[in-house]
Amino acid sequence: MCFICLNSVSFTYEGKKTPAVDDVSISFDAGESVAIVGLNGSGKSTLARLMVGLLRPQEGKITLSGRPIEEYSLPEIGRKLGFVLQNPSHMLFNTSVYNEVAFGLKWKGEKRREAEHICCDYLHYFDIWDLRDELPFNLSQGQKQIVVLSAILALEPECLIMDEPTKNIDNYRKEKLKKLLLDIWARGTGLIIITHDYDFVDNLCARKIYMADGRIMADEH
């Protein structure tokens, strides 16, 4: 059974004539590593937002673990899917980097010592331990991106959907992120990476979906 299933999904933004996503039918298996690539404005981000239930399709049906996505609440989706938005600033709302990473763990009911351990691991892994007491809004875009990634990865979702994860990251951290993603994928977490950074997903994702004008142009396995 497929993990995320899209069946003839179309979506048009209010006031726009052409659909951002046009009659897309696609399925993602659990633990699959997929890259959705395409030029700016090809509908990649809209597709991701549809998959996590932030947008409702005007036509077609989306299912998550066999259940229609409308039946899930956002927190329920959040427990299954980890979604990293294109703009990291919209995902930061805590007073310190440490609290940002720990936020989801606390709400997940993780024990204090365990939560501390996970936070330390991610902050050290991405070399941002020194920034732990910093206000997240004062960080650079790249640092913000890393903090958001750490916060989402710490929750260990079944599948990670990342919208342009390498947008503001330097090459050193990009390589580290790639290594980590390969590692968590090997542990069974699914990856759906939306990007136009072909080099980043080249060795990382076995399946590549090419989008243009809201449609799927190619699906390479």
């Binding site: 996590v52 932030l54 609440s73 956002l74 927190p75 989706i77 959040g78 427990r79 899917l81 979604f83 938005l85 703009n87 919209h90 995902m91 709302f93 936020f103 989801g104 709400w107 997940k108 916060a151 989402i152 929750l155």
Partner: peptide, 14 residues
Amino acid sequence: EILNSVQLRGVDMR
């Protein structure tokens, strides 16, 4: 967007 992000991290406001 921020409210969605909070909920996607598992916080059920209801």
